[in-house]
């Protein structure tokens, strides 16, 4: 009988795919690009997303928006916490991804820990920012008048091109905490950690479509994202001035909110407010003659 067992095992390489609507499709375009580590060695092929992939991701995000924004704030907090739990259990995997990008082991561990802590931080904010940013307004007529923040809708995020994972988490977490759904273009040079994050998210309690992650070229995808009529807001990592100008022009098609946060603090609750609309409700109060006498 022939020996079918080989002595040395071939390791199974992971195919890095996109994350759209809770699933992991390849790009519909069939295109890919080579991802290199900091030493210049090829380590994987990543999908080179197309305009169609972006549109699929926006559709998935829009479909998920009603359910996600309709959950109780407390429940969204539980789910963000769960996302952090799942990341915690995969710390070594994330650390390995960051080592490829040139981080030292110490730096990589520190970044992964900071990512998890950021998620925990925003999990806590889920049912608290409303109190901070709501108001009962003292109008001069007999009305009960109050203003509350509500999620803006589908948020397009260009993740930081300077760090592999933290930039994505810092922009994604406040968007999710506020009840938005998002389409994220990952770091182009170092997209692997973002896809590993997608795999973690898929096994957390986050509903499919709430977060969608594309890999590819920012310069190719950004014009389609900024002109898309079903994207309500854009969060941009600092871009070149020319790119920012064309993005803001395209964004006027449907008055997208183009966010460049006024705070540098990545943990500020103002990051949540950046992606909220304020709704003011008026309701009459019956005007009883001589009211106040009851006191």
């Amino acid at each position: 009988m022939a020996n079918t067992q080989s002595t040395s095992r071939l390791s199974v390489l992971k195919t890095y795919k996109l994350y759209i609507g809770g699933q992991f499709p390849r790009t519909e375009s069939g295109r890919y690009y080579v991802v290199k580590n900091s030493a210049g060695k090829s380590i994987a092929n990543a999908c080179l997303s197309s305009r169609k992939d972006l549109r699929d991701a926006v559709s998935a995000a829009r479909a998920a928006f009603g359910g996600w924004s309709g959950r109780t704030a407390y429940n969204r907090g539980q789910i963000l916490y769960r996302m952090a739990e799942v990341m915690e259990s995969r710390r070594t995997e994330f650390t390995d991804e960051l080592l490829h990008t040139g981080s030292t082991l110490r730096e990589a561990k520190k970044e992964v820990d900071a990512c998890i802590d950021t998620l925990i931080h925003y999990a806590g904010w889920c049912d608290k920012y409303q109190q901070l940013f709501s108001a009962v307004n003292p109008v001069a007529s007999s009305h009960f008048n109050f203003s509350v923040p509500e999620p803006t809708g589908v948020v397009g995020i260009i993740a930081s091109q300077t760090n592999a994972l933290m930039g994505l988490i810092q922009t994604m977490a406040p968007a999710l905490a506020g009840g938005n759904t998002c389409v994220i273009v990952a770091n182009s040079e170092n997209p692997l950690a973002s896809i590993t994050l997608a795999e973690a998210l898929a096994t957390s309690d986050l509903p499919g479509g709430v977060v969608n992650i594309l890999t590819g070229k920012v310069a190719e995808l950004l014009p389609w994202m900024s002109g898309h009529y079903d994207v309500n807001a854009l969060v941009l990592d600092p871009l070149s001035d020319a790119m920012l100008k064309s993005t803001e022009q395209e964004a006027t098609t449907n008055l997208k909110r183009v966010i460049r946060s006024k705070t540098a603090d990545p943990l500020s609750p103002y990051r949540i407010l950046d992606l909220q609309e304020i709704k003011t409700t008026w309701h009459p109060i019956e005007n009883i003659a001589g009211s106040g006498a009851a006191y």
């Binding site: 109008v139 001069a140 709704k279 003011t280 409700t281 008026w282 309701h283």
Partner: peptide, 17 residues
């Protein structure tokens, strides 16, 4: 919508966003 009037309409006030 940014402003919702319930059982009233077209009310405005400088103290109301």
């Amino acid at each position: 919508a940014g402003v919702i009037w319930a059982n009233t309409f077209n009310k405005f006030d400088a103290a109301s966003p």
